[in-house]
Amino acid sequence: MPEKTAVVASRSGLHARPAAIFADAAAEMDVDVTIALAGTAEDEALDASSILSLMTLGAGNGDTVVLRAEGTGAQEALEKLALLLETDLDAQ
């Protein structure tokens, strides 16, 4: 399963507005995407399209997360979502 790491750039981390923006983007992908804090077991990864999962994740500014996707177009989806995470979504 392809994976990509990203560093959370939003000042508030993946909370409130940034979590909603990211969850919407993940939900629009044609692949299933999971997210986990770096160092977390793969089987404990959460659904990246779920705002509740993102809030539960507790990823703060500067934290490294691992995105994993399965399906056709997985690598492209991971690239787009990683770029989104590495953008300060609080500033938009």
Rank of each mutant, 00 (worst) to 15 (best):
M29V: 06
N61C: 15
L52E: 07
S12H: 05
L14V: 04
A82V: 12
V31S: 09
Q92M: 13
D63Q: 02
V33F: 01
E42I: 07
H15D: 06
V8C: 06
D30L: 08
P18R: 08
A23K: 03
A16K: 03
T64P: 01
A48I: 07
E86G: 11
L37E: 08
V31F: 03
A25P: 02
T72R: 14
V33C: 06
L81S: 07
A26N: 04
L37H: 09
D43M: 02
L52Q: 08
N61G: 00
L81Y: 04
E79K: 14
D32E: 12
A25G: 07
L81T: 10
M1F: 02
S50R: 01
A77I: 05
L78G: 13
G60M: 03
A36I: 03
E86L: 11
E86T: 11
L14K: 09
A45M: 05
L46A: 13
L54K: 08
F22D: 11
D90K: 06
E86Q: 15
P2S: 10
A25L: 08
I51W: 02
L85W: 03
S10V: 11
V65P: 00
E79D: 15
E28N: 13
V33P: 00
Q75L: 14
L54D: 05
E79V: 15
S53R: 02
I21D: 00
L78F: 09
A59K: 09
L57C: 10
A41G: 13
G62P: 00
E44K: 14
E76I: 04
R68D: 04
D32F: 06
L46Q: 14
G71C: 06
E76C: 00
